[in-house]
Each structure stands twice: as structure tokens, then as C-alpha cells.
């Protein structure tokens, strides 16, 4: 069976599911007047922004503004999550008991408490002490959260590399740091792309929790739009779709990366 035929079957299945859903909506007594026409302006619109900015031009609507913030906070958290996770993953394997135990404590602490609670603690407690903006606090909370999970993934990745690799590198006179950087981590990262992708897809979705600290992300903007218009179905479907765009793109990008890196196998 070729690729196009399979895609057609998939699309067909989706269409059938949509048709059934539509049937239940329309024929089973749920009367709902759809207002999809109000959605496009929440994405893009042409016109003035406010009295201060009266120039009519193409502007992002509220959902698009939220989308951009979610993208920004997700990408920053992924970036810092990788850095924290790499350090933690290496520290978990340290010969130094103090380093090892601190890293372990961090992982257990973060993994075993709810992200929502962590966001509140970092925003209200740490954030007000250090005068962090909501964005900084949100990014910090998500990065620290992701760092714990990424740390475990990195540790497993490093441990999966045959110990002969480290021995070969060290026997050539490389320091531990050089061997990690040039020999172990590149191989480990290649191996952990699939679980990392899963983790970062989760992170993008979890980022919707930062709406509780009044960060105007996609979720927050969606809630506001619903409060204003009462078009809950249309808005939340659109919000879900926009999250899907981000996660699916990431998913595709990692598959491409995996393919590219497979050339040395």
C-alpha cells in the first residue's frame, strides 16, 4: 500500500467521525447556532488597534497574540529545559555523592509535585522576592519542571552508551568533559530524540497552565474570548487546533531530525 492511499484512508476515517459528530449535534436535539464567522478576526484582522494606534493595517487577533506568547514561552522553556536537563543528567551520574544526591533530590521534588503548584510557588513566592515578571516566572517554572524530566531522559541516554566509548575517549587522553561533549552526549542525544520529543510536546500543552498567573497565552486569550462572546465551542476548537499546529510541527521536526541523524547507523 503506498503512502497516498494510506493518507486517503486516514482522511476518510476522520471525515466519517466528523460526520457522526455533526449528526449528533444537529439531529439529536442539540440546537446550537454556530458562529464560526467570528473566529477569523480572533486570528487576524484588518483595521485600527485603538485610539492610540489608529492606522488601519493587518494585525494579529487575540488568539494569534496568545499563540505567539505560548510559542515564545514553550521555546524558551524547551531551551532552558535542555540545558538544565543535561546538567542534571550528568550530575545524576557523578562520582561525587553530594552532586549526585542533590540532582536526585531535585528530580524527585519536581516530578512528585503538581506543576500548577510549582507555578504558583515560583510566581508568588520566588517571583515576588526576585521581582520576576509573570513571563519570567512562567518560563522559570516550566523550565525547572521540564529540566527534571529531561534530566532523567539524558541520564538514561548516557547510560545506554556502551562504556567502551568513554574508555576509548579517555584512553586517547581526552578529559571527562571532552569525552562527554564530543563522544558521549552526541550519541546519547541521538538516541533520546523520541522521548525528548514526547516530553516537549507535553511541555507545550502544560504551558497552558501559566494562564493562571495572568500570562496572556493561548489558553488565557481563549478563556477571555469565551467570556466576551460565549462562543465556547468555536473558540476552544480553534485553541485546540492551534496547540495541535505547534505540537504537530514539533513532532514532524523531530522525525526529520531523527532521519537526518540516522545516516551513521
Amino acid at each position: 500500500m503506498n503512502f497516498n492511499k494510506r493518507s486517503l484512508i486516514t482522511l476518510g476515517m476522520l471525515a466519517i467521525i466528523a460526520a457522526i459528530a455533526y449528526y449528533f449535534f444537529t439531529e439529536k436535539g442539540i440546537t446550537y447556532i454556530w458562529h464560526w464567522e467570528r473566529i477569523p478576526e480572533m486570528l487576524f484582522y484588518y483595521g485600527p488597534k485603538s485610539a492610540d494606534d489608529p492606522m488601519p493595517r493587518l494585525r494579529m487577533g487575540v488568539l494569534m497574540i496568545g499563540f505567539m506568547l505560548t510559542l515564545k514561552i514553550s521555546l524558551s522553556s524547551i531551551f532552558f529545559g535542555i540545558i538544565i536537563g543535561t546538567i542534571v543528567g550528568i550530575a545524576r551520574l557523578s562520582h561525587e555523592p553530594v552532586t549526585r544526591r542533590l540532582a536526585h533530590a531535585y528530580v524527585e521534588l519536581i516530578r512528585n509535585t503538581p506543576l500548577l503548584v510549582q507555578i504558583y510557588i515560583i510566581y508568588f513566592f520566588v517571583g515576588s522576592m526576585l521581582r520576576l515578571s509573570a513571563f519570567a516566572a512562567g518560563t522559570a517554572a516550566l523550565s525547572i519542571f521540564a529540566g527534571a524530566y529531561v534530566g532523567e531522559i539524558v541520564r538514561a541516554g548516557i547510560q545506554s552508551i556502551h562504556k567502551g566509548q568513554m574508555e576509548a575517549a579517555r584512553s586517547l587522553g581526552m578529559t571527562y568533559a571532552h569525552a562527554m561533549r564530543h563522544v558521549i552526549l552526541p550519541q546519547a542525544f541521538k538516541r533520546i530524540i523520541p522521548p525528548l520529543a514526547g516530553q516537549f510536546i507535553s511541555l507545550i500543552k502544560d504551558s497552558s497552565l501559566v494562564s493562571v498567573i495572568a500570562l496572556a497565552d493561548l489558553m488565557f486569550q481563549g478563556q477571555q474570548a469565551v467570556a466576551r462572546t460565549y462562543y465556547a465551542f468555536e473558540v476552544y476548537f480553534t485553541v485546540a487546533f492551534l496547540y495541535l499546529v505547534m505540537t504537530f510541527t514539533l513532532s514532524m521536526a523531530t522525525q526529520y531530525l531523527e532521519m537526518r541523524l540516522a545516516i551513521s547507523d
Partner: peptide, 10 residues
């Protein structure tokens, strides 16, 4: 080494 231990990604 017995198992060569070449760096497979290089």
C-alpha cells in the same frame, strides 16, 4: 580494544 570502540557517530 577487543570491540574496537570506534565512535559510531563520526
Amino acid at each position: 580494544f577487543q570491540l574496537f570502540n570506534l565512535f559510531p557517530h563520526k
